[in-house]
Design a protein around this nucleic acid. Sequence first.
RNA 1: GGUUCUGUGGCCGAGUGGCUAGGCAGAGCUCUGCAAAAGCUCCUACAGCGGUUCGAAUCCGCUCGGAACCUCCA
Length: 503
Amino acid sequence: MSLKVYNTLSRKKEEFKSITEGHVGMYVCGPTVSGESHLGHARPYITFDVIHRYLRHLGYKVRYVRNITDAGHFEEEGREAEDKIAKKALLERLEPMELVQKYTNLFHWAMNEFNTIPPSIEPTATGHIVEQIVMIEKIIKDGYAYVANGSVYFDVEKYNTDFSKVGMPYGMLSGRNLEDQLETTRELDNQDEKRNTADFALWKNAPPEHIMRWPSPWGEGFPGWHIECSAMSNKYLGDQFDIHGGGMDLQFPHHECEIAQSAVYNHKTMAKYWIHNNMITINGRKMGKSYGNQIMLSQMFSGEHPLLEQPYHPMTIRFFILQSHYRSTLDFGNDALKGSEKAFKRLWEAYEVLNGLPLTVDRLPLSEAIDDIDVKVNTLLNEFDEFMNDDFNTAKVIANMFELAPIINGIKDKHIPAEALKPETLSLLKSKMKAYIEDIFGLKQEKEGGDKLDDILQLLMSLRKEAKAKKDFVTSDKIRNELLALGVQLKDEKDGGMSYSIQ
RNA sequence: GGUUCUGUGGCCGAGUGGCUAGGCAGAGCUCUGCAAAAGCUCCUACAGCGGUUCGAAUCCGCUCGGAACCUCCA
């Protein structure tokens, strides 16, 4: 059983074979740190975190590179050409790099809340100006870029003509051809520097008010939008690497331009598999700056946003994202998030019950009905791998987990005899659930508090048990109800035991 | 206008040509001092109209609706 991934390049699921055996190079487009990340940004980073974790689970050594775009890009010729980072810095009276640092820190904080594993390398655009200049020089030397007024543009038409012959036309990823684009590209002002409207900037001459600027062979300026990813992926992952990921909205033009730049530079399609996650929508619309409908991650966690009925824990959001397939749109809504919150809680509690089940159970002669349970559990568990290998279908794995939950709880409540599961099945159940829930899906317990809180709650529960034994329900209810008011829910169990869950 | 995708039960969402995921909400039951939790049961859908097929939510066509990209965007 092998891993299959949907490759945007071929629009098909393909068997995954890494270029270097046992190793995977993966590049994912990271955030532009000119502002705070919103809910939509959570999707790619969580999606690729799970892909990263799964590849590791399969035994690959993964070099995961995710950039930080901290140099201002703009492709807004024709409108007010402004470096967005520099502009906001003026408004907020901050140094641009101070601003960049602030949002980088916030991004890292949110990624940590989501329990994502940090990338192996997290290169910044500003830290790789030299590499970008070197790449641009080579592209100019080879005749695929030209200089105009201190800026450098990529000659898309020439590229397309030449590279179509070797199977790398401009538009190969997004499935559009240049002719269509030339017809439909709308008229913009100030296009006279470009030979062709489809051309894109590799280097931009910096106007005087532009704060972020670097010397270059073409004068002071800053890199174009696309070149950093080509330069940095090439530096850390080589001429061709395994996986390039990002949001679907980056397919065109960003990834298309990356492919073209890198193809000129090293005559290869830079990445073998292109993986794109779909968007998070809100009221059916993509969440994004331009729509003014974004909810920042800090707002998601705090609940402070008009559209939010309550705060949502990072793990709720992570679980919510994993409940759908990464290539489908996912619609935000309070009902949906609240559903995920409860679902995750139930799943996690079943997982904790599972961890508490004793491994060695005396086997008794089994009836057929009970044998069926053992078979069913094995089937459900084996499907975990099958589903993940089918283009990372986390939604189906989670569905199976919810079929296992009643069995686990049933054993605890003795609806199902403990010996229904063979020791090796129970052992497999435990190890597989741990591997998937914690290691691959990266889920963790929502509640906090630690040992001391646990000790205190154990004490309160023992007091309540005593009261109950004496049929002093006034006291026992008082303990239960007042704890509930504090957000701690007590649960009486069949055998007179008691447990709690927070929130 | 061009390119691509999409329309599943109250809500969120998987999905394969036939065996009709899963979660949340709702209803009933069991357990329980009560409650909660848990378990069991119920609620059974695939935008519309044609077509292909023994059989389609799943393939094809048309109609209607929605979205993404074509401009910074995860």
